[in-house]
Each structure stands twice: as structure tokens, then as C-alpha cells.
Design a protein around this nucleic acid. Structure first.
Lengths: 341, 341
DNA sequence: TTGATCAACTACAACGTTTTCGTGTTAATA
DNA sequence: TATTAACACGAAAACGTTGTAGTTGATCAA
């Protein structure tokens, strides 16, 4: 790459001092109109732009926020990033994205790289492996120095920082309730393993709705899916139950789509024999047949909120106490649970 | 945030010079073991990390690469980012993501922000609006200064830089050929408007396959979809043709899914009456019923290649002439075109 | 005793910018 | 004529780091 043009180079060109050039470009009236104009013309011609590293170093501020997410090829996370980017941009910040790939080690290293001065704050959704390990010392280190940190979606309560979460309990409740309302009696739950908080919380909501309706939760109807093994084989077990359920509540889109596919293959009618409901994380629900009813998560909003909390923290606008924002879910009713009309 | 610890602070603590601290932390044997150890212990205790801005300013290198994409909530683009991130990371770079949201103005501003010294190079997929406008001056400015730039997917031939593209002509050809092989005679093409190069190129491949098979391309069977208007209404026109096609080739997943859905609603059997084929950009194809045959695009590979070209350019490894890498497509045959067996 | 060698440090420039505090010249005022 | 004010510019520090080029004081050989 060609040598970038700097104040020094311009200064030498006109045989003036660096200060003069700096001031001229800032239209300071300390500099005579004549000098000002010729410097500006020259700078313009050579497309001078102040070096941002120098500015950042001087200002002790990068106007960049770091984001660490488990994966990016994922509808929910990319939607959140979109929201973060939108808000960040509006407030003059750029976004640096790092992926943990669900790995503890990579998360730690990302944190370390980002917090050496290259960003003003970070937004994180914690990696699976970290949640499993329950080792949050890398975050604690940051918080000890009051480094601006916002957790979203996959959070941990013990960390004293701002947080944004989806109302997963409410979502689970809403989902189960909808199934109960359309007359389902035996609702199978397709959830994740316990350490995945999202799945666990949705189960709490499911249980709440069941108890609320005077029904017991039969643990035989709860399937904890291991994401690293064959999903079809695990989900197929639903149909081995003595009494096959009349509804399936899946905590994500993929589980729901697979369950529905298997049900159809086995000759069940959707939704007449079995109603199926998932949580959206992409476009799948819309295009299955029948289309899937789904709890919708407002990722974009979540991203905006997270960015807002972070930037408020960085700029010391907003309240001093740590916030915990809860984003409520919606429900998009489609044919997979819609009987009648 | 608390004051970050610097060499200066440590130097003051032990009443030595900044250089001494710097050298001690680098284990230089210019410094006595005694001093070295106490400084290292102190730095370690207070979790000293060299300020990366200072390092970058000094080294005139950020080890960050900028990426500008039209949108991020998009399976293909997020996959590419994944690939970029992987390769970049392997070579010690971080990734800064900016979104153009298909807007010319935002693309220009992103370029401007990124190239003021905050990244060592950029990878770009050009915004729709820019393609429509055909104004590439912001890229030309960069190239004039030999700024490292790699274009991917949505490229423009006149710009002298490294490029990575999907073999869209080959993909279109492969797609049409597959349909011809299973016996389709009247293949409708669902494509984009002409200025979207991806759609245009796939059409070229489609045409090539048709001519190759001795068939003429009937423009009545070519539907140019406008993404900003109602997709269902536009796609539905296929079924108004005098002779309804026996196959539909859609240049993306959504068009294919919608076309298939409409066909089924109208009572056509898939694939017996109409075979449907798309280009994947997500998980939809896998979960429709029947699942959609699709041309697969290796976005991850594309990202890796783009990152490799860029970093080679930055580090002056690799050839001096600009490269144009072509990523070939695959085909995933599923039930929507699979007759027999 | 002189000079050299060596260990263990320090000073300083450089990266590019902004900004405060000079400083010299000219013109106006008392 | 002496003082002051306005004007137009420059010097230098600061942000945090690294590396080269000194600078001490001590030890040692001749």
C-alpha cells in the first residue's frame, strides 16, 4: 500500500508546522485564510483522513464495541448483531465481531484480545462450554476493573453487569398455554440438556402452564436432546411412548421441524392428531408444511437494547445500577396448531 | 472504567524508567533478574496487557480486517463471515463487520470509516444500490493507493483487485441440466432483476444448458422477481402460463419454497407434475416437504479464500497479479426432483 | 593509573493527532 | 515613543509502546 498522507507530510510540503496544518484543516481562524485554503485544497486532493489510531490513542477511546457470540451462522445471533450494529452506528460506534464457536478457550482469548484497548466495551453471549464449566473468571476480571460488559441471552446471574434476556419462562408458558387452549392434553416437550439455560427456562414455563391448567408434568414426555448426536433418532423416541402425545412443544425450530416431519411420515395428521409448536430462530417455520406455529424472539430489539446498555455504560449516561432488560416473546400462530376455520 | 495499567504506572511504582519496565516484561537480559522478576510479578498481578492501539500505531498495522456486507441476517453472508473469521484468526487477524444494508451511501461511509487506518484491508460484497448506480469511485480511490481490497460474490469486473466468486453460470447450468436429465421439458426460471448479477449469471447457465439440450429459451418462462414487492403474487404468475411448466428452477431458496408451496396448493404433485429446484442459502430447503433439491454454495470456503487473498495482499505473500478465484457449486438432490426409487 | 569491558540501567525518537501555551510581527492606540 | 492588541503561526506535551543509542558505575587487566 502506498504511504498514507499525514499532517507531517502536508506540513513539509508547505514548509509550515504540523500544528498549522491541523488547525487549517479544522478551519481554525488562527490560520490565515490563504494558508488555510491551500492546505485544505491539498489535503482534499490527496484525500487526507486523520489516522484513527492516533485519534483513538489520544482520546483514549476507540468508539468500537466488541461482540462475542457462539456462532454467526445462526438466525437468532445474526439478528442480534444486526440490532447491535444499528444502534451502535446511530451513536457513532463500530462493531467488531468475534466468534467463540461455543469454546471456552476461544471465548477467553477473544476477551483478552478485545480488552487490551481495542474496544470500549463488549457484548457477549456465553459459550456452551463455558456454561458447562461454570468458569466465569475471565468476565470477573473485567468487572473488577469496571470494564463495560453486557451479557445477552446466555447470561449468568452471579456476574454484576448489565444483561438482556429473552423471557424464556414466559415464552415456554405462552407456548404450552396455546397448546392447552386448542385442547391438547398430552404435551411432549423437546428440550435441551439441563445446562443450556434457555432450554431449562422454557421448560419451567411449560411446567408452569401445565400446573396452572391442573395437569401434571410427566417426565416421560420430556425429551432432553443432545445436540451432538443424531437428532432424528433422539426425537423419534417420542413416538415410542405408550400414549403418543397430542402436541409437541419444541424449544427450537429444528427440533420442531424434525418432529413434525417424523410425525407425518408415521401417518399422523398435523395438527389434528398432533399439534406442533416451536421457537423461531430462522425461516424454517414459515416454509414447512404445514407452516409451524412458533414463539418469536425479538433478536433485533435485543441487540439494540444490549448496545444501548453498553454505550450508556461507556458514556456514563443512563443509570448507575446494573440493568436487566427482559425482552418478551411473541407467538406466530400458523397451521401446525390451528384447528378449525 | 478504572484507569488501565500502563508501563508508565509500573515504572513510577518501582522508580525505574519506562524502558526498563518494557524490557523487563520482555525478559530482556539487559535487566537484572531481581528487577525483572518484581516487575513481572507486579504486572501479572495487575493483569497488564500492552495497549494495542499504541502497538498498532507504532507498527503501522492493526491486524484487523474490515468486512462490508449488504446484510447479516442472511445465511449465505453469515457463512462467508464465518469462513473469513476462521482464516483471519488463524493468521492473527481480527474481523470488523460493517453492514451496508444494500445502501450506496452507507457503503461509501463504511469504506471511509474503515480505511482511515483502523483496518489493514477490506473484504466487500457490493450493495444492490451501488450495483444499480454503477458508481464504484469509492473503490477506485482505494485501489489508487494500493489499499488491499477483496471483492466477493457481488463483484465488478472493472475494478482491479482480488476477487472471489461463486461459479454462478456453472451453478445455473448444473441446475438446469439436472432438471433436463430427469426428463423436464419446460423449465420455468425464477430469477432476479437483471442488475443483480447473481441472477443474471445463473440465467446464463440455465440458457446454456437449454441450448445444449437443443431446447429454446422461451422468455415467457423467465420470471424476473422484484424483491421489494409481493413475492407470492409475482411467483404465482407461473401458473397462469398456457402450458404450465414441468419444472421450476429458482435462483434462490425462498423463491423455490414459495413456488413449491403454491404448486402444492394448486394441486400439483411434486416432483411428478412439477420438479422444483433452488439455490440454497439456508436451512429452508432441508425442511420443506418434499425437501428441495438445491445448488449448494460453499460460502465458508468463499470466506476463507477471500481472507486468504486479502491477507496475502496485506503481507505481500502470494502472487503480485490480482487473482480471481471461482468457487464451484455443488448439488444436493432431494425429493423435489427425485423421481423413482 | 589508565583504559577497557561489562552489567544495568535511562533517554529519546517515532508512530499521528490535538491542543495549550507561547512568540514574533505588525498595526493601532495613548 | 512606548504600550498594547490582534494576528498568524510554532513548540511541545500527551496518548502507550518499542528499540536504538547512550550513560552510568564497577570491575579487571596491563
Amino acid at each position: 500500500m502506498k504511504q498514507k498522507i499525514t499532517l507531517k507530510i502536508i506540513a513539509k510540503e508547505f514548509d509550515v508546522s504540523i500544528s498549522t496544518v491541523s488547525k487549517a484543516l479544522k478551519n481554525s481562524n488562527e490560520i490565515s485564510e490563504e494558508v488555510r485554503e491551500k492546505i485544505k485544497a491539498y489535503a482534499d486532493y490527496y484525500n487526507y483522513k486523520p489516522n484513527s489510531l492516533a485519534l483513538q490513542l489520544r482520546a483514549q477511546k476507540t468508539s468500537v464495541i466488541g461482540v462475542i457470540i457462539p456462532e454467526i451462522v445462526h438466525h437468532f445471533f445474526s439478528t442480534v448483531i444486526d440490532g447491535i450494529e444499528e444502534h451502535a452506528n446511530k451513536r457513532g460506534y463500530n462493531v467488531m465481531v468475534c466468534l467463540s464457536n461455543e469454546s471456552f478457550e476461544k471465548e477467553v482469548s477473544n476477551i483478552s484480545v478485545l480488552t487490551n484497548g481495542s474496544v470500549d466495551g463488549v457484548i457477549v453471549s456465553i459459550a456452551r462450554e463455558t456454561q458447562k464449566k461454570e468458569d466465569y473468571s475471565h468476565f470477573e476480571m473485567l468487572l473488577k476493573d469496571d470494564f463495560p460488559l453486557v451479557l445477552f441471552d446466555r447470561i449468568v446471574d452471579s456476574l454484576k453487569c448489565d444483561k438482556v434476556i429473552i423471557d424464556d419462562i414466559g415464552g415456554g408458558f405462552k407456548a404450552a398455554n396455546h397448546l392447552l387452549e386448542i385442547g391438547s392434553k398430552r404435551i411432549a416437550l423437546l428440550t435441551t440438556e439441563d445446562y443450556v439455560t434457555v432450554g431449562a427456562l422454557r421448560k419451567v414455563g411449560y411446567r408452569k402452564a401445565m400446573l396452572n391448567a391442573g395437569l401434571e408434568v410427566d417426565e416421560d414426555y420430556v425429551f432432553k436432546i443432545n445436540d451432538t448426536e443424531n437428532l432424528y433418532a433422539q426425537i423419534e423416541k417420542i413416538f415410542h411412548l405408550e400414549k403418543v402425545p397430542d402436541a409437541i412443544l419444541a424449544v427450537n425450530e429444528i427440533y420442531a421441524a424434525i418432529a413434525m416431519k417424523l410425525a407425518i411420515e408415521k401417518g399422523y395428521k398435523i395438527p389434528e392428531d398432533i399439534a406442533v409448536l416451536g421457537f423461531t430462530s430462522g425461516l424454517i417455520s414459515k416454509f414447512t408444511s404445514p407452516p409451524l406455529t412458533a414463539i418469536t424472539q425479538h433478536g433485533y430489539l435485543m441487540g439494540q437494547q444490549a448496545a444501548e446498555l453498553l454505550i450508556n455504560r461507556i458514556e456514563h449516561t443512563g443509570p448507575k445500577e446494573f440493568q436487566k432488560e427482559v425482552i418478551s416473546t411473541g407467538i406466530k400462530i400458523r397451521k401446525s396448531t390451528y384447528i378449525g376455520g
